[in-house]
Each structure stands twice: as C-alpha cells, then as structure tokens.
Simulated scan of single mutants.
Amino acid sequence: MDRLQAMQVFTRVVDTNSFTRAAETLDLPRASVTTIIQNLEAFLGTRLLHRTTRRLSLTPDGAAYYERCVRILADVEETEASFQSGNKKPSGKLRIDMPGSIGRLLVIPALCEFHTKYPDIDLQLGLSDRPVDLLQEGVDCVVRVGALQDSSLVARRIGLFEGVSCAAPTYVERAGIPQTLEDLEHHKAVNYFSSRTGRIMDWSFLVDGKEIEVKMKGLVSVNDADAYVTCGLEGFGLIQPPLFMVLPHLRSGQLVEVLPDLKPLPMPISVVYPHSRHLSSKVRVFVDWIAELFDRCPLLSGRASLDKTCSQRTFEQKESAPDLKTPVMSEWVA
C-alpha cells in the first residue's frame, strides 16, 4: 500500500465529505478510493470513518489521524517545493472559481500572460455566482466579494468593489432625482435577490464612516445581473450595481448617477484558499499574479473615481475604453 497516496485520498475524502467527489478531484475511479480507504483502515487496525447512505463523519481516531495527515502532507509539499523552486516551474492542475463579471472583464483577457509565465499549470477556471465550498468541491482558491465568514480559510485582499447608484433618464424624468436618503422612500428600485437565500439585498451607503442600509420598494426583483441592469436601463427603477459593470452606460448617458455625494459601501475583493493549499507553488504564483492584475485596474483597486473613469480608460492595459457588455453579477457575499 502506498501510504502517502492513502493519506492524500483519506484527507480528500474528509475535505469533500464524499467518496465520489474525492475520486473526481483526484482523477481516480471511485472504486479505487473505496479500496484505498478500506486498506488504510485495515493497515491501521481502526475505523477512520462512519459511513451511512447520506453522510460521512470522522471517528475519534479518524479525526486525530486526519490532523496528522494534513501536517505530514504539508511538510512533504514544502520539502518538495524547496528543491523544485530553483529549477522547476509550478505545474499541475489548478482549480479556480470567481464571479463571472470579474472573470470575463479582467481575468480572461489577461490569461495569455499567465499561461506564458506558467505554461505547465493546467488552469480550470470556473465562472459562477454561487458560493463555492472549496474543500468539498476540491477547488484550490476562489475570488470572493464581500465580508468573509469562514475563518478556516486564508484570505488575501486584492481589490475593492465600488458601487454606484444610478437610473435611466426615463425614470428620472418620470420620478425625479432623489437628493437625500429620506427621498428614497418615495422612489422605486429594481431589487436584487440572492439565488442562495432568496433574500432581497438592501441598498448600502457609507455615511460619516458608518454603513447605512436602506430597504427599497420595487415592482420587480431579479437574481441575474443582465436582467438587473436591463431593468434599470428600461426605467423600472433605481439600481445600485458595481461601477465597473455599468461604466459604459454611464459614459453613454443611458444611465445617470444619483446621490453622487452618498456613495455605496465599498466591498473588499479577496482571493481565498484553504490552509492546506498555502504551501502550493501553483496556488502561490496564481495569487500573486491576480493580485498584481487587480492592482493594474483602477476600477477594481479602489483608485478610480466615477468622474475620472468616465473620461479616461477603464483598464490600464487598454489604450481606450473597452466596449464592455454587462457581465453576470456576483451576489457580493462570500
């Protein structure tokens, strides 16, 4: 029995809470994963996992063995990386997930740069707006927007999601322009609800250093960014999307900013990965690369203002403002 492989398989089964998902992420047949765990338990002379038709759980011995396996595998990876770093580039499969809007507008256009620097990394890029469980789904790292709640993960802040309150000229002509937060009581908004919870997302403003949330009345609620912005363009109500999503519409006059002195609360953008991945050279180089990429983008690094971006280029990599299409919106939460 290959004990190192058995440790890798066992920890992956625990992390994903599934024999099937562990097999998929390790590119092994499910039957092989089952056999390896059975042989490992026989070799150790103890049961590591409680198995039922619906769930897996660790036995006390399994929990202790898991913690030791994580440390041993991390030590092995660190040792290998220390010898490989001087003469070998990072390689292997790297699974990443991020909001579709960020992926399409910023990351994908720059992927040739990453591939040129690291040609041996097989990058699997998932573009989704749903919350991703890194451990259960075998994802190496994700880009997340908003407050991070899972303390078991390592997070590095790489940018800032800045919002803008705006409306179509047709709505403004019909309903007027709100001048204060109190005026919003008399206005309608296009509401955005979470696909995960169904909860309507309140509007959020930063006033004197404090977050102020406002519940908006509306005639329509959507959970898709294209629909959200389209409803705003059609005059259904006020919208509060991320600035980088609607910049072309603001430049063209299809949308106009409202409450310019009351900015929406900015939200941090972070790249997040499990503690067990922090020594991986392929994760490390990707995190460093995407952090640098965000730093080169004023709209997502917190250095741009609406007045500036409406008159200058969107991304520093471009010589002129790109013809941006409205991308899919993240749910703005971790």
Rank of each mutant, 00 (worst) to 15 (best):
L4G: 09
L4T: 15
A6E: 12
V9T: 08
V13C: 05
V13Q: 05
N17W: 11
N17S: 15
T20A: 10
T20Q: 14
R21L: 13
A22S: 09
A22W: 01
T25E: 08
V33L: 03
I36G: 06
I36V: 14
I37Q: 07
I37K: 08
N39K: 15
N39C: 06
N39Y: 08
N39M: 13
R47Y: 08
L49T: 10
R51P: 04
R51I: 12
R54E: 05
R55C: 08
A64T: 11
Y65G: 02
E67P: 02
R68M: 07
C69W: 02
V70T: 04
R71K: 12
L73D: 01
L73P: 01
A74Q: 07
E77W: 03
T79S: 07
E80I: 05
S82V: 06
Q84K: 12
K89C: 04
I96M: 08
D97F: 11
M98L: 15
P99V: 00
G100K: 00
G100T: 02
G103N: 05
L106M: 12
F114C: 10
Y118M: 13
Y118K: 13
I121Q: 07
D122S: 12
Q124I: 12
L127R: 01
L127M: 14
R130H: 15
L135A: 08
Q136K: 11
E137I: 07
E137D: 12
G138K: 04
V142I: 09
R144H: 04
A147Q: 12
L148G: 09
L148N: 12
D150K: 07
D150A: 11
D150R: 06
S152C: 08
R157E: 13
R157P: 03
I158V: 09
L160W: 11
A167C: 06
V172K: 01
E173S: 14
A175M: 11
T180N: 08
E185W: 08
V190D: 01
N191P: 03
T197Y: 06
T197S: 15
G198Y: 07
D202P: 15
D208L: 10
V214L: 06
V214K: 04
G218L: 00
L219W: 11
N223L: 09
Y228E: 00
T230L: 12
G232C: 00
F236C: 10
G237W: 00
G237F: 00
I239V: 03
Q240D: 05
P241L: 01
P241I: 01
P241W: 00
P241M: 02
P242A: 14
P242F: 07
L243Y: 06
L247F: 01
H249M: 07
S252E: 05
G253H: 02
V256D: 04
V258T: 06
V258I: 12
L259C: 00
P266G: 02
M267T: 05
S270Y: 08
V271Q: 04
Y273P: 04
Y273R: 06
H275V: 06
S276A: 11
H278T: 10
V285R: 06
V287I: 12
W289N: 06
E292M: 15
L293R: 05
R296Y: 12
C297T: 15
P298L: 09
P298Q: 10
L299V: 13
L299P: 03
G302E: 03
D307M: 14
K308I: 13
C310V: 10
Q312L: 15
T314C: 15
F315P: 02
F315I: 04
E319P: 05
S320H: 14
D323C: 12
L324N: 07
P327V: 01
V333S: 11
